[in-house]
Every structure is written in C-alpha cells, then in structure tokens.
C-alpha cells in the first residue's frame, strides 16, 4: 500500500484525537509562507471569469482550435468509449447546454440551436463540488478558480454527483493508455487512474503570465478571460455591453463562464 510511515503515525494520532486532526487541518499550508511568492509577471485576479462570444465562435465550421490546445497542454487522454471520456473543454448543442430554458422554449432560431457551445468547468463562485469533497482535494482559490489537488483526491466521485454541469471526469483507467503516440506537453503531468479531473482555468499558465490555452488558441477572439472583480476588465466591458447567459443560474452556484448568444 502507498500509506507512508510518517502518514501512518499522523493517522494514529488523528484517529485517537479527531480534535487534533481538525487543528492540523486548520493550520495546513501556512507554514513558512513568507518563503514563497508569486513569480514576477504572474496574472493575479480576484475572480477569474470567461466570456464566450457565440457570435464569433462557430464562425469557422468544425473549428476545434481551443479544444486541441487544451488537450495538448494538459495531456488529456483520448478514449474511444464515451463511458471513459476525459474532457476539460468540449462542444455541445444549445438544447443540452441550457437545459433549463431550452426545454421550455422550442422557438429559438435554428441558427442558435446549431451553434457549437463550448462547455467546461464553470468555476462557480459557490461550488457544490467543493462543498461535498471529504478531503479538500477540490477547493476554491482566492482568485475564484475551483482547483483540484490531484495528490489528495481519493476518487470517491462525490464531486461528480454534486456538479450540476457535468464538468468533472473520473479516470476509470490509466490515462496514459489514452496518450499512446500523442504529442506530450513535457511541462505538465498526466493524471493516474482513480482520481477526478477537470478544467483548471490554466492556473499553471496564469502563474507564468500567460492566458489560458484555449483563449490563446482561438483565432476568432471568441474567448475572453479576465477579472470579474475589476470593473475595467475586458470581461466586464463585454458583459456591460452585451446580454449574456450563464448555465443553470437558478441553482445559485454563480458560474464564472458567460455566453453572449446574439
């Protein structure tokens, strides 16, 4: 088993004294914080968000630039069976993306029904997945990004049941089996069987001052990434000038991904 000796001693202590365990939880991650900092030029925000302009997306028929970029940058495996699919960003139809309104309103223009809506983790302000995770393996960062700590995930899949957007993937098999012969991004790890994964808004790129891979890859300028808390940001400008939708807003999750429809 992978249980370490050090860990084992910790457990022995924690099992006897749950209180002590709780105290440990309280202080984790704060030790010697002064010795770490943000790299120079890192993009730092208060609430990162994405605006997807559907007037521009779908301009080029069959375009998969953003999806391919993400798949490469994060070494996302490909499996032929839908059962085991892993996807961080993908396309779906209006009817399935906006389930709450589409079933009630059949008279939307055909054009919109056929648009390739991009879907990904919504990085909710009030994320149900974070609420249910028993190990804090998924958590909300101060900048609004809902992140995963793959080192801690036990693979219970409670977060998958909790996510109302179907954004989470489980590694049913060794993901490396789905990377055979693919060009790898040597800078990013793969995952392993038995953990959950999803879009991370490219935290590893933001730390280096780069935009998310999908945003950078889109030649139509359909994807805009920025800080929702900054009134002068580009996302805020877009949202103040255009009417945008979010998925299932009635659930109170407050998604950070917006869709400008028309």
């Amino acid at each position: 088993m992978e249980l370490k000796r050090r860990q084992f001693l910790k457990i022995a202590g924690a099992a006897g004294l749950l209180g002590a365990g709780a105290a440990q939880g309280l202080f984790e991650g704060t030790a010697q914080a002064s010795r770490v900092m943000h790299p120079e030029g890192a993009l730092i925000g208060k609430r990162w968000a994405m605006v997807i302009d559907m007037r521009k997306c779908g301009e080029k028929e069959g375009c998969n630039d953003c999806i391919n970029a993400c798949n490469f940058v994060h070494n996302i495996p490909h499996f032929d069976t839908p059962k085991e699919e892993i996807k961080w960003i993908w396309k779906d139809e209006y009817e399935h993306v906006f389930t709450d309104i589409s079933t009630l309103d059949p008279y939307v223009p055909e054009r919109i029904k056929e648009l390739p809506f991009l879907v990904m983790c919504n990085h909710c302000d009030n994320p149900p997945c974070v609420r249910v995770c028993p190990t804090k393996a998924t958590f909300r960062r101060p900048d609004g990004i809902v992140a995963m700590d793959y080192h801690r995930c036990i693979g219970c899949r409670f977060c998958m049941a909790a996510c109302p957007y179907g954004s989470r993937n489980f590694n049913w098999r060794d993901p490396r089996l789905g990377l055979k012969g693919r060009k790898l991004n040597y800078e990013f790890p793969t995952r392993m069987r038995g953990v959950v994964e999803k879009c991370n808004f490219c935290v590893e790129r933001l730390a280096k001052g780069k935009m998310p891979a999908c945003v950078e890859a889109c030649k139509e300028g359909a994807l805009t990434f920025g800080d929702l808390a900054d009134p002068n940001s580009e996302v805020r400008k877009l949202l103040s000038e255009n009417y945008a939708l979010r998925r299932k807003p009635q659930l109170g999750t407050k998604p950070s991904v917006f869709y400008i429809i028309a």
Binding site: I11, A15, P134, T135, I154, G155, V195
Partner: peptide, 22 residues
C-alpha cells in the same frame, strides 16, 4: 468504490466538516 483506496486515510488527515461524507 473508491478510486484511490490507499489514500482513504486522507479523510482523517484532512477532516472536512462541510462534507457529508466526512
């Protein structure tokens, strides 16, 4: 049912009262 049974003890190492599973 758990994908990483070896890490099961993470539930004790990182107690999370807001999770019902805890």
């Amino acid at each position: 049912d758990i994908g990483q049974p070896a890490r099961l003890f993470n539930v004790l190492l990182h107690p999370t009262p807001n999770s019902i599973l805890f």
